[in-house]
Simulated scan of single mutants.
Amino acid sequence: MKRFVWPVAVLVALLVTDVYFSHSFFSIELRGGHLYGSLVDILRAAAPLALVALGMTLVIATGGIDLSVGAVVAIAGALACLHISGLSDQGSVAGVLVAVGMALVLSLVLGAWNGFLVATIGIQPIIATLILMVAGRGLAQLITDGQIITVNSGPYKMIGAGYWLGLPLCVLIAAAVIALSTVLVRRSALGMLLEAVGGNAEASRLAGIKSRWLILSVYVFAALCAGIAGLMISSNVSSADGNNAGLLIELDAILAVVIGGTSLSGGRFSLAGTVLGAVIIKTLDITVYTVGIPPEVTLLFKAIVVIILCLAQSPKFRAAFQRRRQRPGPAATPADQPKSEVAA
């Protein structure tokens, strides 16, 4: 639990700042059976990022990295919207389910491609996923023909902007995926195997662990999470933009993983910490608008907050800071002592 102390402290500080500048920040209203409020907005915005960061966590746990998740987000949304736009009845639930299925299947294929390059061919993860990061944007543009595809489908809009039981459906979907992943990883030997592969892939192979299949699986899972996030993002705005959808979300996902306490070198990881990191990032976005920080310094403000948080989490920095505070002053010399003491 110690690893969550500083992230929680930063989250509380951001929320207190929001309340100071907006006294109704914590207020939640029930309108038409749906919950509305700033806290609900934070959860809604954090849902796609939490999913992408969830897959990124398992990839990083094996000692890899996936820079292509943003492109997969764009591709999944583009393919789903393309199929729905061609339906004679865009309100057809069956048609929307087919579109969702096509998008997720393609996401799995893209994840398998990344896993194949890394686990089978042996290409460095940052290079292998950089290929799809660049080519994937081109594929998304090819699917949309370089245009923004707009759809008018009630069932599809439910994914990102709908409500169920008073809560945003995207939050419930993200919570379900996170819960299932946690049970699968932490209630079985899978989590330990992933940490073993990330800690020392060669030693784990010699111990009989099929590291190649594990590495392939985490890249497939990361792409699946990115595909679901892409459906959420595109359905929320009822359109697909192959150029801007999911742009730089991979960097926010990596940042959420780091804030959550997972080491980029692989090994031990924390799914709960990653989700907390995603919530912090989106709370920070809301804080920027609540406080009224000028747009030209927004990125600088976010960078300062992130640097402070990362330094606070660093054991080496905290140890050096403690040593500096506890360092004794210089010993007194005879010249510094009172004359009466020198004479004695």
Score class of each variant (00 low, 15 high):
G261L: 07
T62D: 06
L169V: 11
F301D: 00
E341Y: 11
S211C: 12
L58R: 00
Q124N: 14
L142D: 03
L184E: 11
V220W: 02
F4M: 14
N244A: 11
P168F: 13
W213T: 14
A229R: 00
G111I: 08
I131S: 13
G55E: 02
G86H: 09
L169G: 02
Q124F: 12
S234W: 03
G199N: 13
E195W: 10
L300G: 11
V177W: 08
V98E: 10
V306L: 15
G37K: 08
H34W: 01
S217T: 11
L190E: 10
V73P: 02
A256V: 05
V109H: 06
A256G: 04
L180T: 13
A161W: 12
V185E: 04
Q322E: 13
L49D: 04
A196M: 15
G37H: 06
R268T: 13
Y20C: 03
V72N: 02
L165N: 04
G230K: 04
A119T: 13
I148A: 07
Q313F: 08
I131Y: 00
I215E: 08
L300C: 07
A245D: 11
S204K: 10
V291I: 15
A223R: 05
I215N: 10
A78V: 00
I228M: 07
L11Y: 09
G95Y: 03
I143Y: 02
C225Y: 06
V93D: 01
Q141M: 14
G162A: 12
A312N: 05
G86I: 04
G77E: 01
F21A: 01
K210I: 08
L224F: 15
G77K: 05
Y219A: 03
S68R: 00
V5W: 13
G199D: 12
A47V: 09
R186Q: 14
L284G: 14
V40K: 06
L82K: 07
L104P: 13
L255V: 11
L11V: 09
S239C: 06
V342F: 14
P155D: 04
G37Q: 08
A245W: 02
P125G: 09
I131Q: 03
A61N: 02
P315Q: 09
A253Y: 05
A203Y: 14
V297G: 01
L82A: 07
C225K: 03
A71I: 03
A223E: 04
P328D: 08
S88E: 12
K316M: 14
E341V: 14
M56F: 10
R187N: 13
G63H: 09
T57Q: 07
T120A: 09
F321G: 03
V109F: 15
L49A: 04
L224E: 05
P294A: 13
N200W: 12
G86Q: 08
K210A: 15
A175N: 11
W213S: 15
L276K: 04
G111K: 04
E250T: 07
A203N: 12
A140E: 01
Q337V: 12
L108V: 15
V305A: 13
G266A: 11
G230P: 09
S85I: 07
H83N: 03
A50R: 04
L49M: 06
S88D: 09
A201W: 07
